[in-house]
Amino acid sequence: MKTDKQSPQILNDFLAYLYTVKGKSQKTAHEYYLDLRMFFRFIKQQRGLADDIPFDEIPITDIDIEFIRTITLSDAYAFLMYTAQDRLKHNNSDHSDVGLLSTSRARKVSALRSFFKYLTDKAHLLSHNPIQNLEYPSVRRSLPKYLTVDESIALLESVDGPYKERDYCILMLFLNCGLRVSELCGLNVSDIKENQIRVLGKGNKERMLYLNEACVDAINAYLPHRVEPNKDSDSAGALFVSRQKNRIRKTTVEHLVKKYIAQAGLDPSKFSAHKLRHTAATLMYKNGVDIRTLQDVLGHENVNTTMIYTHINDANMKDAASKNPLSSYKHKKKSSEDDE
């Protein structure tokens, strides 16, 4: 992972630890970097160390362990307050962004907690962790959108064109295995072992998924039509190949999914490649797959992430109760004459 010359060495060391030891993706490490850079800029601004400098231009190369030792839990909470209020006004956002902001603040808390835990427990540069009691903000989770069985079948039946075998196989793996888009793009032919497939998930964590009959048939139908990829290090061996003979890209997959969603008569503004992952998880859970097994299938590190699918069933049960034709019936009291 590349280091940033505009970043202090202590932060670069932490990012390298995240990537090489903790196995975090470059994307996650970069997001943590942006969050911590904002935090340090905020602290310098609050302490009058960056007067007359626009916030986004405040340098942080001078941040060292002595400066970090002065940071308190109150500083962290003040920063979270800033991201919730001042930053909101700065971006001219409205109240519809509150859900996104709480999610963003939760990630900033995660970045701060990880950084200070690293300094305390791993680098041993701090004798105590000043923000170990920093709490995560509550995040309102909305129920994930998903396709019904009939909508999923309509989607599969909408596939056509010169790459129909490839595209059908992609949709089938999404709907049956619950893969992330990045995981599907990263698949190699060598990852297929009879009725199993090796998936490289977040943090470079591997998991083996069983392939049902529909997936095996789709793969077997696709392989004879697979475009022979270029022999470069990234594309060689790729399972899904573009017409340019390169490993298929996320943008290509997202585009083709949107195309077939529209062709199936569904709303492409409501459904995406990621929603197919939700569809697979929902259909599995609703048909008896227990939550721990579903966690393993989806590659969730924390079962709390998987628990959202239990709420889908609750919502469906509530909806079923309200749709009963007797749901609005009100008992009519008998009059005294009826009793005679």
Score class of each variant (00 low, 15 high):
Ala320Met: 02
Ile261Val: 10
Asn91Val: 01
Tyr32Lys: 04
Ser335Cys: 01
Asn313Ile: 04
Ala29Leu: 14
Val109Gly: 01
Asp267Ser: 15
Asn313Lys: 06
Leu184Tyr: 11
His128Thr: 07
Gln244Phe: 12
Lys145Val: 14
Thr148Ser: 09
Leu294Asn: 04
Ala264Lys: 08
Leu200Phe: 13
Lys24Gln: 13
Glu157Cys: 09
Leu209Thr: 04
Asp296His: 14
Asp339Thr: 01
Asp94Trp: 00
Lys245Ala: 07
Leu18Lys: 11
Arg207His: 11
His128Tyr: 10
Leu298Ile: 06
Ala281Asn: 02
Asn204Lys: 15
Ser142Leu: 12
Arg166Asp: 03
Glu165Lys: 04
Pro229Phe: 08
Ile248Met: 10
Asn304Arg: 08
Phe67Glu: 06
Leu49His: 05
Ser114Cys: 04
Thr310Pro: 02
Glu301Ser: 11
Arg249Ser: 13
His128Cys: 05
Lys258His: 09
Lys275Pro: 03
Lys258Arg: 06
Ser110Leu: 05
Asp160Lys: 14
Glu254Ile: 13
Lys2Val: 10
Ile68Asp: 08
Leu18Glu: 14
Ala238Thr: 06
Asp51Thr: 08
Gly265Ile: 12
Ser93Pro: 01
Cys177Ser: 08
Gln196Phe: 11
Asp338Trp: 01
Asp4Pro: 10
Ile68Glu: 07
Ser242Ile: 10
Asn92Phe: 04
Ser242Leu: 09
Leu18Pro: 14
Ile60Arg: 10
Asn324Phe: 01
Leu18Cys: 13
Asp217Gly: 14
Ile153Ala: 12
Lys164Gln: 10
Leu276Ile: 06
Ala106Val: 05
Lys193Asn: 06
